[in-house]
């Protein structure tokens, strides 16, 4: 009896709408993030993640409204990422009802931001997004940190970055393989395991899930504390309940409340 492995559906939100929509039979509006969140809450998701990929600053306010409305209906942990750059951004999101914020570009640009954020709000609500791509032609397995949704290389080694972020006060790491993202061929297990084994804080595996066995691999081989997926749930390929049953059968304890 200990902590259960978490399943975290992730909703990409742009200008207040879920990108590509969520394909649940009973949703009236497949593009409404709040409706999707409520559906996942009912379905037994262990946490929810909103990733705001809105390009322009002016449209960013929509995410605050979405978080606020979600928190009115969903009594479960909520992580919000994308465009979190200032202490004020974090404060606003937490006040709207987010429990954790995921920080990516701002942590790469100014690692001290993580110290300040963790001191202010506590390590437990600071998640650092480790968006990494495998370095070509390197002998040993190495990964490089990318920012701006995987478009910009930073030259920073992912493992060093992860350890640095832990030291500065991150409470959790969201490790996404930019090579695998959207491929449906499974997590980059070596990346996930390399980072998870090197840090004391929990790691969420992300990027590449195409079937339920991939989720099991993320935990058993990637040593992740939680697994994040988007499309396999959004398109109704598998339900959260199916995923939990499948993972539980492999011997991993899941919450079935």
């Amino acid at each position: 009896m200990t902590l259960k492995t978490r399943i975290i559906p992730c909703l990409d939100v742009m200008n207040g709408r879920v990108v590509k929509g969520v394909n649940f039979v009973d949703l009236v509006d497949a593009g409404d993030p709040v409706e999707a969140a409520i559906a996942y809450d009912k379905a037994g998701a262990d946490e929810l993640c909103f990733l705001d990929i809105t390009a322009t600053h002016e449209d960013r306010d929509t995410i605050f409204d979405i978080v606020e409305r979600t928190a009115e209906h969903c009594f479960m942990p909520l992580t919000v990422g994308g465009g979190v750059r200032t202490i004020e951004d974090i404060r606003k999101l937490l006040l709207c009802g987010a429990d954790k914020v995921a920080i990516n570009s701002a942590a790469v640009k100014d690692p001290n931001f993580i110290n300040r954020a963790a001191d202010k709000f506590g390590n437990q609500c600071i998640v650092v997004s480790v968006d990494a791509r495998k370095t070509e032609n390197s002998e040993k397995n190495k990964w490089e940190i990318y920012t701006h949704g995987g478009r910009k290389a930073s030259g920073i080694d992912a493992l060093e970055f992860a350890k640095n972020m832990q030291k500065r006060g991150a409470g959790e790491l969201l490790v996404t393989s930019m090579d695998r993202d959207g491929t449906k061929i499974g997590f980059d297990l070596e990346l996930t395991r390399t980072i998870s084994d090197a840090v004391k804080i929990p790691v969420i595996a992300s990027g590449g899930v195409g079937n339920l066995e991939h989720l099991v691999e993320g935990v058993k081989q990637g040593h992740a504390s939680a697994v994040l997926a988007a499309s396999i749930f959004h398109f109704g390929t598998f339900s959260i309940a199916q995923a939990k049953q499948y993972i539980e059968k492999s011997g991993i304890a899941m919450r079935q409340d």
Partner: peptide, 11 residues
């Protein structure tokens, strides 16, 4: 091997 923070669902 247990991670800190104790983060997630427990009975």
């Amino acid at each position: 091997n247990l991670k800190i923070p104790h983060m997630g669902w427990n009975t």
